[in-house]
Write a protein that binds this DNA or RNA. Structure first.
Lengths: 354, 354
DNA sequence: TGCTGAATTTATAACGTTTTAAATGGCCAG
DNA sequence: CTGGCCATTTAAAACGTTATAAATTCAGCA
C-alpha cells in the first residue's frame, strides 16, 4: 500500500512508526494518506469520505494518537485553556477548591484545561486580567468576588473576551454570571429567626465592596421590615474578618446595651466565631439566642447542629460556571441564557408561616 | 537608520508595527536585524554583540513584546507548565488553595505557569499521571497524599519525569519531597498531653494508606512508651472522616468502659468534631479532658482557644515544593538537596519537661 | 470521445519560535 | 593580495497543526 517511491524521510520508514509521540504524520504514513486528509478526517470534516474517517480514527486510537496542543494553539490561536483567578481570601473552607472541582467537571471530556492564575502575582486583579488577555493566555476567564461596578467585568466586556463571574454586577451591559440567590437566602433565613420568636436579629454581612453583601442586606432588611421588628447590622466586621475578630466584636457588643437576640451569618466560620463569642458571655445557642447560617461544607451542621443552615453547593456552582463559559466561547450570544441564579434549598423544617 | 533598500515585507512597512501582538519579526523589522538575531539577543546569547542585545531588549520592552508560549513550546518541547494533582479530599480548610498559593509564589517571575489537574477526571491518580506524562502536558508535577509505596512515585521515577511530593515514601529510590515532620509534631503534642497530667491519650490518625499516618502514630507511640502510660488509637475513624462520623465515634467510645482522657488530633476539623462529641457526653475541654491539634488555618485557635495547637504553614510548604521542583527541572541531580523536612514550630508554652 | 461538476484527496503555506549551518566582514600574518 | 581566523549576523529548516487553494478521480451526459 505505502508508496515506496517516496524518497522523503525514507531513512527510517522501515520502522513504520518512528520512536516518540505519534503525530498526524505517523498516521499518514501508516494509512498512506496525506497529513491534511488525516487532520480533516479526525475532525470529522464532511468532505472526507465516511470510510476514510473510520479508518483514520481506528488507526489513531490504535497507536494512541493525541493532538499536540502547542501546535494546535500556534496554528489556530485558540489556547484551549480556561483561566481561574484565584483570590488569597478564598483560602477558607475550601471555597477555591470546590469551585475548581466543579469547573474541572464541566471541562471534562472537552479539549479545555483549567489553569489557575493566582492574582497576587499582579498587585491588582485588573492587572492580572490585562496580562492574561493581552498575552492570549486563555480563551476564557472565571472569577469571583464581584463588585457592583467591577473593573474586571468592564475591561473584559470592552474587549469582548469571554468570561463568567461568580456574582452579579450592577453594570448596564449584561454579562454571563452564575450567582447564588443571596437575597432569598437572607430573607428566608431572617424570617426563620423571627418565626422562632426572636425580636432583634443581627446581620453579619459580606465586605461592603462586593455585590453579594448588598443582596444579603436587602433580604435581611426586607424580612425585618415585614415583621416590623428591631434589627442590627453588626459594624466593624464582615464575613472576611478573621474568626478572632468576629468573636471579639460579638463579645464586645454584648457588653453594650440592647444587644441582638439572633444572628444571620453568611458563612460557617462566621457562625462558629459568633457562637464562641456568645459562649464567652455565658449565653447558650438555642436558649438565649439563635443563629441561621449559610453552609458550603458540611462542617458547621456536624459541629453545631443547633445552627440552622442553608447549604450552598459550590462545586455545582463551579460546574455551572464552566458550562456557561463553554457556551459563551462556543458563540452563544443570547446573554440571558448565560445568566444563572441558583435558588437556595430551603429545608422543609423552615416553616415560612411567621 | 532603517535600511529602506530591503524589499521584503515592505508592503505594510509604512506602519512600522503591524496590527496585533508583536512578534520577533516585529522587532526584527524595527531594528533591521534578522529574526534569528533578535531571538538570540533576547536570550542573551554571548555571540550577539552587547550593543545589539541592549538595543533589541529596549525595543522589545517598548513595544511590549512577550514571547508566544505556544510557539516556544512547539519548538522546544518544553511546556513551561507545572501541574498539580488536586484531590477531591483536599477540599476541607483550604488545603488545596494554600498549597497552590505557595506554588504560585515560587513560580512568580519564572516562565512557569501553574495548571490544575483534578484527578477525578481519571479514575485513579496513576492514570492521571500517565496521561500527563505521555501527552507532555507539563514539565513537572506536584502531588500530595503520598503512600509508602506510592505507584505515582514509582512511575515518575522510572520515566525520569520531574516531580515533588508532599510527603515521603518508603521506596528505595530517593526522590524530591517536601514534608512536615509529623513524627516530631505528634511526639511533642503527645508529650504535652502527658505533661498536663493526662494518663490515657487517644490518637486520631490519618488514613492508613498514607505515609504521614505512620509518622503520626510513631511519634504518638514513642511519647506514650517513654511515659509508660496507657493509650488508645481510635479505630473506625481517621482525619478524612466527616466531622459527623468523628463526633459519633467519640461519643460512642465514651459509652464504653475505660475511655481516654485526652486526644491528639492531626487536624482542625477532627479537633472540633471531637470537642462536640465530648460535649455531647457532658465533658468539658480543659477540665475533664485535653486536646492538642495541628492547625493549618487560624480557625481552631480562634474558636477553641482551649485547644493547644501547632501550626503547619501550607503556603510555605507549597512555596518550597515549587522551588524544589524548579531546581529539579533545572537539572539539580543531588536528590538530597531536593528533600525538605519542615520542623514543627513548637510554641514556647510547650514545656518539654515531663 | 470529451466536457462538466461533484466528491474526495492533496500540496503548499503559514502560525512564532529555536536550532543548525552557513555567510559576511574585518583584521592580521604571510 | 591571499588566506585564515575571529566576531557577528543571517538564511533555512524544523516543531505539528490547520487553512487555502489546487489537483485528482470518476460519473453522467452531450
Amino acid at each position: 500500500m505505502a508508496d515506496p517511491s517516496k524518497p522523503a524521510h525514507a531513512e527510517d520508514s522501515g520502522l513504520a512508526v518512528k520512536r516518540g509521540k505519534p503525530t498526524l504524520r505517523t498516521i499518514a504514513e501508516i494509512t498512506g494518506l496525506a497529513v491534511t486528509t488525516v487532520s480533516r478526517a479526525l475532525s470529522d470534516a464532511p468532505q472526507i469520505s465516511i470510510e476514510t474517517r473510520r479508518r483514520v480514527r481506528e488507526v489513531a486510537d490504535e497507536i494512541g494518537y493525541s493532538p499536540d496542543r502547542a501546535a494546535q494553539r500556534l496554528k489556530t490561536g485558540r489556547t484551549n485553556v480556561i483561566g481561574v483567578l484565584l483570590d488569597p481570601h478564598e483560602e477558607i473552607l475550601g471555597y477555591g477548591t470546590s469551585i475548581m472541582s466543579g469547573i474541572a467537571k464541566a471541562l471534562q471530556g472537552t479539549a479545555y484545561h483549567l489553569i489557575v492564575m493566582p492574582n497576587f502575582l499582579n498587585s491588582t486583579n485588573v492587572e492580572a486580567v490585562n496580562y492574561i488577555t493581552r498575552n492570549g493566555m486563555a480563551d476564557g476567564l472565571i472569577f469571583s468576588r464581584t463588585e457592583p461596578l467591577d473593573p474586571r467585568v468592564r475591561l473584559l466586556s470592552d474587549l469582548g473576551f469571554p468570561f463568567v463571574t461568580h456574582g452579579r454586577t450592577e453594570l448596564s451591559t449584561p454579562h454571563p454570571y452564575v450567582d447564588y440567590d443571596n437575597f432569598t437566602f437572607s430573607y428566608q433565613a431572617t424570617k426563620r429567626l423571627i418565626a422562632k420568636g426572636r425580636r432583634k436579629p443581627a446581620l453579619i454581612s459580606g465586605p461592603a465592596d462586593f455585590t453579594f453583601a448588598g443582596h444579603l442586606q436587602h433580604g435581611f432588611m426586607t424580612a425585618v421590615r415585614e415583621a416590623g421588628c428591631a434589627y442590627e447590622i453588626l459594624s466593624g466586621i464582615d464575613l472576611d474578618s478573621p474568626a478572632g475578630a468576629i468573636r471579639d466584636r460579638v463579645r464586645q457588643r454584648y457588653a453594650e446595651p440592647d444587644p441582638p437576640d439572633s444572628f444571620m451569618c453568611g458563612g460557617e466560620v462566621c457562625a462558629l466565631a459568633t457562637i464562641t463569642g456568645m459562649s464567652d458571655c455565658g449565653l447558650t445557642l438555642g436558649r438565649e439566642y439563635d443563629i441561621v447560617a449559610k453552609q458550603t461544607s458540611h462542617l458547621l451542621s456536624a459541629i453545631q447542629p443547633q445552627v440552622e443552615t442553608i447549604y450552598e453547593d459550590l462545586t455545582a456552582t463551579g460546574e455551572d460556571m464552566g458550562r456557561v463559559l463553554l457556551q459563551k466561547i462556543g458563540g452563544e450570544s443570547d446573554v440571558s441564557k448565560l445568566q444563572l441564579l441558583l435558588c437556595p434549598q430551603i429545608p422543609s423544617s423552615f416553616g415560612t408561616a411567621g
